[in-house]
Design a binder for these strands. Structure first.
Length: 432
DNA sequence: TCTGGGGTCCTAGGACCC
DNA sequence: TCTGGGGTCCTAGGACCC
């Protein structure tokens, strides 16, 4: 039996933990750059506000209904997420952190100690609410895909828990689920299924496997079909405890951002890319990884009436895998120079690091350019840098190439709440 | 004026190898 | 005149997820 625990309207719920006045009010949280709606309270959903809707388009509606608006505050959400996951770990020997707001629990080995699955689900909800203040829903079933489906149905119940442990329950749940609501059926596949006369999950399960394989993206669709029939096909990736974070081993690490306004100045763009590669290198070191492939990307306005290809990329190979900011910085700026077209305005830039391998076991490059003593000095420098920045705040010591702290490319973030749990200056002050 | 960011997995096609 | 089969690796692009 798997359980899927999903935080309700997670970012909105995080804001509510520290601002209880928001309970019962319509609330939305915006994406980076205050671009789109990415989290909505139930009251906001009831107003017809859609996920991913551009903020500027719905601004009048938000004002008309007194909707409370927040810029995203990942310091807060990330910290509360870790706290939720810590509570969940008390309920199962193995947990797979699937995203910032959901985890799978592996209950196969669990002795039920006189409790039913539904009772365990209720305990989980109560514990998370009590210890962190976040409401969650629990879905339980034999496969991850069915647990996801159960979780969706749980959101519509008052008890917040749905267990699918009999063939009849599973069948009823499949009948109650439209194809577009199945985990793994997205915007493109749903219309394809509907056109073939398949409207519900139950109808999909009744189709022959060969048909599914042919029309539903090959093996991916085939796995999904089997999972819905109760045969577990998706791999179980338990999350390391000391890892403290997301999933097993990454294949890539990225940092990309939209700018507050279009930029064409080469210096400004260099500073942006330098900042992004600095962040990405920090992420690599935190996860004890090194990269030997670096992609730089520049994006032009994809909504422009004449827009052609809007993302341009340069891929650069590093002679040996590294997580040294200085080395990655030099290569990234070389990539940027290859891409830059004078006079072209860019609205977005970023870097992606891939070809990842565990740090500390670099393949030395063929021509002996890797001097072990130099590598050791680099390593010590990075450790010192991370140590200072952890203690005194991000960017306290940084490369000059990243420019001033108040960057001209910085995005909008007009409605950010304090980092209540991770920043001394943002702590509440109690006056007696 | 204003439209997010960070991931995963799979497939097809080309280059190249023996 | 005739022009194989099996494999790897890489890249680009598609589809999906939260």
């Amino acid at each position: 039996m798997y359980a899927l625990v999903d935080c309700n309207n997670f970012y909105v719920s995080c804001e509510r933990v520290f601002q209880p006045r928001l309970l019962g009010m319509p609330v939305v949280v915006l994406s980076n750059n205050d671009g789109c709606l990415i989290s909505r309270s139930d009251e906001a959903k009831a107003l017809g506000l859609k996920m991913g809707e551009p903020y500027f388009k719905v601004k009048p509606l938000l004002e008309q209904h007194g909707v409370q608006v927040f810029s995203s505050n990942y310091a807060l959400y990330g910290d509360l997420s870790r706290r939720v996951m810590r509570v969940l770990a008390q309920f199962a020997p193995e947990v797979e952190v699937y995203s910032i707001d959901e985890s799978f629990l592996n209950l196969h080995e669990l002795r039920y100690c006189n409790q039913t699955a539904a009772e365990i689900g209720a305990d989980i909800r109560e514990a998370v609410k009590l210890q962190v203040g976040i409401p969650v829903c629990v879905g339980m079933a034999a496969t991850k895909t069915l647990a996801k489906l159960a979780n969706r149905l749980a959101r519509k119940t008052t008890c917040g828990v749905v267990v699918l442990d009999s063939a009849e329950d599973v069948h009823a749940a499949l009948q109650a689920t439209a194809v577009q609501d199945i985990w793994g059926i997205g915007r493109r596949l749903a219309p394809k299924l509907q056109a073939a006369g398949v409207q519900t999950a139950a109808e999909l399960v009744a189709m022959p496997e060969s048909w599914v394989r042919r029309h539903l993206g090959g093996v991916v669709g085939q796995r999904l079909w089997r999972e819905l029939r109760g045969e577990a096909c998706l791999t179980w990736h338990p999350t390391d405890e000391e890892d403290g974070g997301i999933a097993p081993r990454r294949h890539s690490v990225a940092c990309t951002r939209s700018f507050g306004r279009p930029q064409q100045d080469a210096t400004v763009l260099s500073e942006a890319v330098a900042t992004f590669i600095t962040r990405a290198a920090e992420k690599l070191r935190r996860q004890q990884l090194s990269a030997h492939l670096l992609t730089v990307l520049l994006g032009t306005d994809r909504f422009a009436p004449t827009a052609g290809a809007s993302t341009h990329t340069a891929v650069l190979h590093l002679p040996s895998a590294t997580h040294d900011t200085g080395e990655l910085l030099r290569v990234a700026l070389r990539g940027l120079r290859q891409l830059l077209r004078p006079g072209q305005a860019y609205v977005r830039a970023g870097v992606v690091l891939s070809g990842l391998e565990p740090a500390g076991h670099p393949q030395l490059d063929l021509f002996g350019a890797t001097d072990p003593a130099r590598l050791q000095r680099q390593e010590q420098l990075m450790q010192a840098l991370d140590c200072v920045n952890r203690r005194f705040g991000r960017g306290m010591v940084r490369y000059a190439a990243t420019g001033q702290r108040s960057a001209p490319w910085a995005g909008r973030s007009a409605f950010r709440s304090p980092a209540f749990t991770t920043c001394w200056d943002d702590l509440w002050q109690v006056k007696c």
